[in-house]
Structures are given as C-alpha cells and as structure tokens.
C-alpha cells in the first residue's frame, strides 16, 4: 500500500498526463455521442450568444456585397416569373403546381461559418421554432450550400458541401446524367462529381444542377460548373472537377428548403422496401 502511494506520488505528473490525454482522445474517438451532446447543449447557449454578437457586428461590413447578391437573385426570380406568367392559366400548369408536391423556403442568416477545415460546418439562426428539421436542404443565393444536421429551438447546424461527409445527388443539366457531389478538401471553391458513366461527353463549363432524386433539394438548383474532365483509363465511370457556384466565403443569407411531400414520400418508399 505504501509502495503504491509512493509510486503514485512519484509518477503523478505522468499519471495525470495519461488520464487527461486518454480523456481527450476518448472525446475524439468516442463511440457514444451522448456525453458530447450534453457538453454541446451546455455550451451552445453561450456559443450562440457570441456568434450572434459577432455576426451583428460583421453584418454591416457585408451589406454592400449582400445587397448586390440579393439584387442579382431578385433579377433571376423576376425573369423566371415572367417566363411562367403565360403558363399560369393552362390546366397542365395547375397540375404541376400541386400543393402536395411543393417546397417552402425558410430564410435564414449564417451566424457561424468555416471554410478552411477538413470538416466545415455552418450555424444558422433558425431552428425548430421556424420549422427547420434535420436533413433539410440549404441553398444560398448562388447555389446549393448543404443540408441541416442538428436543430435546437432557435438554431440549426448545417453540413455544407465543404465537409468530407457531404454527399449530394446532382446531374448534368444538358446531358441529364446523375452523379455524386462530394468535396476532396483542397479548396473551398472546388468539388468533385463522381460516378458519371464513361460514355457521356462532357465539356468544361457544363452546368451541374441538383437531381431532385433525394427529396432534400428540388430539381434544378445550381450546384456548380465543370472545370476539368478526369477520364481515368479503366473503369466505366469517371470524375468531374467542379467549381462550386456558391462562394462559401461570401455566405450570409441562405434558405432552408422544406419539402412538404417528403414524409409521405418516405413512408411510401419504406413500405415498398419492406
């Protein structure tokens, strides 16, 4: 017993080190997300406060660029509206505008955002009280942003395209072939689209839009533009390097997409797979 105590005193520095280091690594490699969630909840109030204050302050410096982006977006929407107007009376359009199959856009402000990590995250100032739920899509004025991960009453966190865990279903706007959008982690402007069948002819500058297959994004949200076609010699698929249309460093205003038909759709699909 005495020896043990002497041992502990003699090596207390090493013992404390091992305990703390193991604890830190356990946090990192944990299998059980619960302690983390607790810690997260405990600190989130404070974090949100800080981020809100910071973004209140920085908001003003971004007003000019933000305005410009909103004007551009407005112009695009007006243009689309004008194109739609003559269709409105037709019967086929009324079927298209079936309210059961429609999307709602919840406006949100970005209050925290990183672009230089391997796994970036975005925090938004909307939560369950505004109708945000996990797995909803998020788009910015210039293109797709990501999908909602966790939600609290007033805030939500988003896994953006700039996260190694992000996967999105996109397609070539002209050719119509589907692929998977992911981020290799080099630059915040570049992503890759894989699984494009190798017989498809793709040109640099071709547009990629969301496929509408996953019920997270409606079809046709712009994702990016092809910058390089990477044809690996063997294999039936190839990869595209893509310039993301959304500049994540300029992100201030986004929209969370609520899909009204999602629950019904998922339930039907579950039935089918069972």
């Amino acid at each position: 017993m005495q020896n043990l105590i002497r041992f502990i005193i003699r090596f207390s520095f090493q013992i404390i080190f091992v305990i703390l280091e193991v604890f830190a690594l356990a946090l990192l490699f944990r299998n059980n997300p619960l302690p983390n969630a607790r810690l997260y909840q405990a600190t989130q109030g404070m974090n949100s406060f800080f981020y809100n204050q910071t973004s209140q302050l920085t908001k003003f410096f971004n007003l000019t660029t933000e305005n410009a982006a909103l004007v551009t977006e407005n112009a695009r929407l007006r243009h689309e509206l004008a194109r739609m107007a003559p269709l409105e009376d037709r019967e086929s359009f009324k079927t298209l505008a079936n309210p059961a199959y429609s999307y709602d856009f919840i406006p949100a402000r970005v209050i925290n955002n990183t672009v230089n990590k391997q796994n970036n995250y975005i925090t938004l100032d909307v939560g369950t009280l505004q109708g945000v739920r996990p797995d909803m899509g998020v788009v910015g004025p210039q293109g797709i942003v990501g999908m909602v991960r966790s939600v609290s009453p007033n805030f939500s966190t988003v896994i953006p395209v700039l996260n190694s865990k992000f996967r999105g279903s996109v397609k070539l706007a002209v050719q119509g072939y589907f692929g998977t959008l992911s981020w290799p982690g080099h630059s915040y402007r570049e992503a890759i689209v894989s699984e494009i069948p190798s017989h498809v002819i793709v040109y640099e500058g071709d547009t990629l839009i969301t496929s509408g297959l996953t019920s997270i994004f409606p079809e046709g949200e712009i994702a990016g533009f092809v910058t390089k076609v990477d044809r690996t010699p063997a294999g039936s698929f190839f990869e595209l390097k893509v310039r993301l249309s959304q500049d994540f460093k300029k992100l201030t205003r986004v929209y969370v997409i609520r899909n009204f038909s999602k629950t019904e759709m998922l339930r039907l699909e579950e039935q089918t797979y069972d």
Binding site: L39, Y40, Q41, N119, T123
Partner: peptide, 14 residues
Amino acid sequence: VFPQGLAGNGSSLG
C-alpha cells in the same frame, strides 16, 4: 468547444 460551436456534431472535439 468554441470555434466551430459544433461539439455534438461529429466535429473534432478533443
């Protein structure tokens, strides 16, 4: 805990 503010979110806490 602070920077990403996303400790519970599979970020690199620790």
